[in-house]
Design a protein around this nucleic acid. Structure first.
Lengths: 135, 135
DNA sequence: GTGCTTGCAAACGTTTTGCAGACTC
DNA sequence: GAGTCTGCAAAACGTTTGCAAGCAC
């Protein structure tokens, strides 16, 4: 937490109350929260932390490489610490979420590189499909 | 084109001017158009075809299995005939789009099924990453 | 005091919805 | 005539932006 604040500072940023609370929320909370969820939790500690401030801080933290976002099917984007990032499988019908090990994407990554010289980022968008129960 | 209209009818739908034009646009146009693009093309033939009508028709055609949509990175969703559906790789930086053969997803599909009994739909969301030029 | 940050409100782009009239059957 | 479909306007949704006041340094 303090380490990130130091990094923010090293890049000309400042150590503000809101920034700290957003960061703490990210470290405390479960993985993969939407901006709105993060704001809600942060507001329990400081009611004035505004949703737009959360968005702005998340964007800055992404530029610093501390945070990444991913698109989980149809809903809003979710944010998490870069160190916790992972790929997900999401059921289109019931929303069930499975954390997919990176190894699962190895051969897709290889094929994409061989055929198109394309480097996939499996964390950035969740793969949609159908879970067992919904099939 | 007529076949789909027949299918629509079989499901209690009606053969309207707008419906026909949206369908023709889908068959004529290139793959993967946004709702707005489809509306723009349709409006060249019939200026009154409204964007919301396009959305409504696309949704109905999806329920019938004639059309599918996919999410192409950050932009709006795109629509295409189910028979033309394919997976895509999209460069996060420049937007370059590569059509990925389904075979590329075979081992990911297998792994997802073995580990989670999850059936992936590789067409529904494009895989993001970086193309050669942007790396 | 400089200038980064914030809260708020208002805009944005995409998609959905409510409604009265128009159309298909 | 019954019921679907349309155009339009307005709302909804997630996200971004402009601005004046506030805070960190």
């Amino acid at each position: 937490v303090e380490g990130v604040i130091a990094l923010v500072r090293a890049n000309g940023g400042r150590s503000t109350h809101s920034r700290r609370i957003v960061l703490e929320t990210l470290f405390d909370g479960e993985d993969c929260a939407t901006a709105e969820e993060i704001a809600a939790v942060a507001q329990r500690r400081a009611p004035d932390v505004h949703l737009s401030t959360v968005y702005r801080n998340l964007e800055e933290l992404q530029e610093l490489g501390v945070v990444v976002h991913s698109h989980m099917g149809h809903g809003p984007a979710t944010y998490q610490l870069a160190s916790h990032a992972s790929a997900y499988l999401i059921c289109d019908a019931c929303g069930a979420r499975f954390e997919a090990p990176d190894a699962m994407f190895k051969s897709l990554a290889k094929a994409a590189h061989e055929q198109f010289e394309f480097a996939i980022d499996p964390h950035h968008v969740a793969i949609l499909g159908r879970c067992r129960a919904c099939r």
